[in-house]
Amino acid sequence: MAAPLAPCRRRGADAGTSDAPAPTADPVPPRRGRRWLRVGVAVVAVGAVAWFAREELPPWAVLAEAFRRVDLPLLGVAAVVEVFSLWLFTRQQQVLFAGFGVRVPVGSAVAITYSRSAMSMTFPAGSFVSAAFAVEQFRRFGASRSTAATVMVLSGVVSVAGLGGLYLVGTAAAWLFPEAWQVVATVVGALAVASVVVRFALHRPLPAPKVKAVRSGGRIAGVVRARLADVTALPARYWAAGIGFAAANWAADLACLLITSTAFGVDLPLVQVGLVYLGIQLVRQVPISPGGIGVIETSLVAGLVLLGTGEATATAATLGYRMLSCWIIVPIGLATWFALSRRPAAVA
C-alpha cells in the first residue's frame, strides 16, 4: 500500500537529495505488519468463539435439540433482514459524507462497513480501531483526514440518537397502547415518517460545510474542540437523514432478533422482547468488550429467561441472532478487509 508513494520520492532523489536509496526499503515493513495484523484478528476471533462456547453455553446436546427444531426458512428471512440492516448503516455513512461534499460509491461503502464490523467485533477497543481504519479508507474518495474523523464522530452520535429515539417511541407506545399490534404500528409509523423526512432532507443537498483543519501538533483538547465545531457545522437536514437511517438500522436489527426468536420457538410478546433488546443495546454503547461479545449474549439470554423462555430455547435463539448479526460478519469482514488492503493507498 506504500508503493504508490515511491515515484514521488524517486523524483525528489533525481532532484538532488542525498538519501535516495532509503525509500526502497519503506514498503516492506508495512505490508508485513498488515499481514500479521490480519492473522492476529483471525486468531482473536477464533479465540473469542471458543471462549464463549466453553464458558457460556448450556450442554451441547440440549442446544442441538433446540437447533433441530428451528424454522430454517424463517431463519433465512432473518438473515436477509440483517443484511438490510447493514445496508442501512452504509447509507448512514454515505449521507454523512455527502453533507461534507464527499461521494462514496455504494460497493466501497459496503466493503468498508463489513470490514469495520469485523474489526469492532474482534479487536480490543475495536470501535476505535475500526474508526481509524475507516478514516484511511474514506480518504481514498477525497475526504480529508479531518473530514473523515469528523464523520466518524458524527456516525457514533447519530447512531446513539437513532437508538434512543427508537427506544423512547417503543416505550411510549407500549405504555399508551394495550395491544402489541398497536405498538408495532406506532413504531412502523414513526419509521415511515422518518423515511419521508430523510427523502425531503436529501432532496436538495446543501453546499458542503467548511471543516476546520487541525494541526498535527495540537493538543487533545484542541482536536476535540475542532471536531465539535465541525459537527455543529453540518446542516440540519443531514443530521435528520443520518438519525433516520440510524433508527431504521436499529429497527431492522431488532426485526432480525424477533424473527430469529420466532424461528427458534420463543413464544413471548414481541413488545417485551423488543424493549429488552433496545435496553441491552443502549447499555452496549459503552465499549465493555469488542462488539459487545459476552455482554449482549449473557444479557439477552437472561432477559428472555426472565420473560418466561426456557434456558435452552433462549440460548439457541440468542446464538442464532448473534450468528447472523456478529459471527458470520467476521469472516466476511476479514475478506473485504483483505480486498481493500490490496487497493492503492490514499496520498492526500
Rank of each mutant, 00 (worst) to 15 (best):
V102L: 08
L72V: 15
A45C: 06
W51T: 08
R10W: 15
A15N: 10
W87A: 14
V80W: 13
A98I: 03
F52W: 09
R69C: 04
V102F: 09
A61S: 13
V41L: 13
V106G: 05
Q93H: 15
R34N: 01
R10A: 14
A109C: 14
V44K: 01
S108K: 06
G40E: 11
P23A: 05
L88H: 06
S85N: 13
S108Q: 12
V70I: 13
L96K: 11
R54V: 03
R9F: 14
E82T: 14
E65M: 09
C8W: 11
A61Y: 00
L63R: 06
S18H: 08
S108I: 03
R54A: 10
F100D: 01
W36I: 00
W87I: 11
F97C: 06
T17G: 10
L74I: 07
F97L: 14
P29D: 01
A42Q: 04
P21R: 08
P23C: 02
L72T: 14
V80P: 06
I112C: 08
I112L: 09
Q94Y: 05
G47A: 09
V104C: 11
G47D: 05
R103M: 03
R32D: 00
R34I: 00
P27E: 00
Q92H: 11
V41E: 06
D71Y: 13
E82R: 10
L74C: 08
R69V: 05
A79W: 12
G76F: 13
V106Y: 14
D26N: 01
T113L: 09
P29N: 02
R69L: 11
P73F: 15
I112V: 15
R11H: 11
Q93V: 12
T24Y: 05
R68C: 04
A109L: 07
T113S: 13
P105H: 12
G47C: 04
R69D: 10
F52K: 07
L75K: 08
